[in-house]
Amino acid sequence: MKIQQLSVFLENQPGQIVKPCRLLASEGINIRTLSVADTKQFGILRMIVSDWRRATQLLQDAGYVVNVTEVVAIEVPDEPGGLSRVLEVLENSPINVEYMYSFAFGCRDTAVMIFRFDQSDAAIKLLQAAGISVVESVEIYSRAGQT
C-alpha cells in the first residue's frame, strides 16, 4: 500500500539539483516524479524512483544524506472536485497531510498523487473505506516501467 520516497538534502544554490538527477540517470534509474521543498538557503528534493534501494545506496555513496519515507499514492479523479473528495474523507479525522504532489503520469481520466500523512495506515484505511483507490506499490513501479 505504501511506497518509498527518497528525500535528499540540497543547498539552495545554482546547479545543485542536477547532480543527484544526473547520478541516478547514469545508473539507469528513472525518477517517476519529484517535488522540491525549499527555503532560501536549503531544500529537500523528494523523489519516487524506479529502484529506491539502489538509488539510496548510490546517493549515499556519493555523499548525500538520504531519508526514506513511506508515502501513499492515491488515484484522484481528473475532474472538478476530484481532489476535494479525497481530502474531505480526512477532514474530520485527526490525520494530517504533511505535503502532497502529483505524479507525472495519469491513467485515463485519473491523476495519481503522492500524499505524505502523519499516520499513513489510518489514512489508507479511511480512504479505502470511502471507496478511494490507493495505488499498490507494485502498480506504481510497473507503470513506471511502461511509460
Binding site: 528525500s7 538534502f9 521543498a37 538520504v66 531519508n67
Partner: peptide, 14 residues
C-alpha cells in the same frame, strides 16, 4: 546535516 537530523519535512529542518 547528518542522517540523524535529516528527514523529509522541511519544517523540521527550519
Amino acid at each position: 546535516v547528518t542522517p540523524e537530523v535529516f528527514g523529509d519535512r522541511i519544517r523540521a529542518l527550519v
